[in-house]
Each structure stands twice: as C-alpha cells, then as structure tokens.
Nucleic acid binder design. Structure first.
Length: 302
DNA sequence: TAGATACCTTATAG
DNA sequence: ACTATAAGGTATC
C-alpha cells in the first residue's frame, strides 16, 4: 500500500483530471463510481479513477487517483508518483504553452472552458492498440474495448481487497486469436490489433522506438503497424510519445479546419498537417486536444 | 500517386 | 419494430 498527494495549485496552469482522462486522449483510466463517458457533460467531478502502470521491469501496479480540494491524491500498490506525474503531463507549463500558441476566439474559448486539461503520456503499446481500435468508433465504445481487453487478457492484481486487471502485454495480446478479439467487440480491427501485437512481441517493431525520431519520420515509422495510418500514428505520437506538435486530423478537427481555419485546408493529410503545425506552432497538439474536447462536448454551440 | 469502396459492430435517428 | 446512418480510419484495389 502506497500513496500520496500533490498540490495542483502549485502546477503551472493547474489540473483538470477529469478532462485529462475523459477527453478522448486516454482510454486507460476508468471511473470507480460508474461507467466512464456515461455522462460527458458532468463537471467538477471528484470521482476516483483507476489505471495500471508498469515499472521499467514491466511489473504492473494499480493506481487509484482523484482530484479534490485542490489536491491530486492517489493510492497504489507501489510508489508510482514519478510515473503518475509523467502520465498526466504535470511538468507541462500550460500558461507558457498557451502563450506560445497564436490566439483566436475559438481556441481561446476552448482553453477557457477546460483550463487545466493536460496532454497525457500514456504507455506506447496500450496507446497503439487503443487508437487502432478507435477507427470508426465512438469514444465510449473505444473505452469499453480497452476494458474488455484488460479483463479478458490482462493479469489480475489485487489492491485494497479489490481485483483489477493490468492492460495486457504485447505477448498476451499476441497469444490471443482473431476470433477471441472479435468476441471482445473489436470487429474488423481484431486482425489489425493481433498482427500489430505480434510484431511488437516478436521484436519486429516497437512503437517506443519512434520517440527518438524527427516528427515526420516518427509518424511514418508508426504506420508500419497494421491498422495504423497517419491519424492513428499522430495519436500515438501526441498522447504517448510527447510529440506536442502532432495534430491528429480526425473528423472533428477536419471539420473545425474547414469551418474556422480554411487557409490550412489542403488536399492531403500530410499537407494539412504541415499547414496546421505552421499556423499553431510547436504546441499545435495542445490546441488540437482543447478544440477536440470543446467541440465534441458541444460547448461550442454559440 | 490519387480516388473509390469495403469493413465489424453498436447506438441513435427517422 | 425496422432500416438507414454514422461512429477519433485504414487497407486494398
């Protein structure tokens, strides 16, 4: 039994834990008090969220965390503070990031609506699988798929008398079968997840290897995994590997570009991506994440 | 190298 | 009830 707490007011820009883990960038946390994403309009939640983390040796641990009374507090089966800080992007200087990004009314409104939302640094393999699963899916179902993968393929762990399941390793997923993954609701993504997991387990490719590459090389590298195109590759770069300039061009963001930033709208993904990065700068991914959450939650009605 | 189409499954709209 | 449509796209032809 371990745990601790952090004064979120001491962080530059504070923290909005709920926004961080329920804004569609991470699917690796779940609420204890009910279905995650069940009510996407709820605000100010101090609910407990649970996830699993692994140390450098691959040993899994449980971490329960919540934000309340100005603190981020947690209990865990091991000392997870350093990993938790990294996972939640607590070192990011939000005011400096916002200041460095060219302002406009829409982006300003998105920043104001969810100030404290931080970009996560989730582990590479689970992030890869998550966003392979995300094709043509709603966020609530993407999350449900990850829970199914945990419960059916992951190793059990006990914390405070409760049994949890670690996110499955590449080996555990690779040892599964397409039929089994289809039964978990992955649909046509099942063979993609299976083959990509096999590639990682066999040492043929490693999503973490992209971390040391130049941005566009890293994006290109990740597309060698099955089921990974430019958009999913950008999600892994932004939400796992710390490439804050990566801008996943999904349907929501493409719509926003067409409506609000038509000068960035080009013929191909690669060219639009480049135009968006030139306009918003090295933290374009932060702008993407705030805009996506703002648009998707319907706060932009006016 | 660009463009069109199929794809699992579920929730929601009509 | 029953059908059409869309959901954080990608692979294939």
């Amino acid at each position: 039994m371990d745990g601790g707490r952090i004064d979120v007011d001491a962080l530059p820009g504070g923290l909005d834990l709920q926004a961080a883990v329920e804004s569609g960038q991470s699917y690796l946390w779940w609420r204890e008090d009910g279905p995650t994403y069940a009510d996407e309009t709820h605000a100010g939640s101090d609910a407990w969220y649970v996830t699993t983390v692994r140390d450098d040796a691959g040993t899994p641990a449980i971490c329960r965390a919540r934000q309340t009374d100005g603190y981020l507090e947690w209990t865990a089966t091991a000392d997870v503070e350093d990993r938790l800080r990294r996972r939640l992007g607590l070192a990011d200087d939000l005011p400096a990031i916002r200041e460095a990004t060219p302002a406009d009314d829409l982006l300003a409104a998105a920043y104001d609506a969810f100030w404290g939302l931080r970009i996560v640094r989730d582990p590479p393999f689970p992030t890869l699988v998550t966003f392979i699963c995300s094709a043509q899916m709603r966020v609530a179902r993407i999350h449900a798929m990850q829970q199914a993968l945990r419960e059916h393929l992951g190793s059990p762990l006990v914390h405070e008398g409760e049994t949890y399941h670690a996110y499955p390793t590449p080996e555990q997923v690779a040892a599964s079968s397409e039929a089994e993954l289809r039964d978990l609701g992955l649909g046509y993504r099942a063979p993609y997840v299976l083959e990509s997991a096999r590639m990682v387990a066999a040492g043929e490719a490693d999503p973490a290897a992209a971390r040391d590459m130049a941005y566009e090389d890293a994006r290109d590298y990740l597309t060698r995994f099955v089921g990974v195109g430019e958009k999913v590759a950008d999600c892994v770069l932004l939400f796992s590997l710390g490439f804050l300039e990566a801008v996943p061009l999904d349907t929501w963001i493409q719509g926003a570009i067409a409506d609000h930033y038509p000068d960035c709208d080009r013929d191909s993904y690669a060219e639009t991506s480049r135009a968006v990065r030139e306009r918003f700068g090295p933290y374009a991914g932060y702008a993407q994440t705030y805009l996506f959450h703002y648009l998707r939650t319907g706060r932009a009605e006016a």
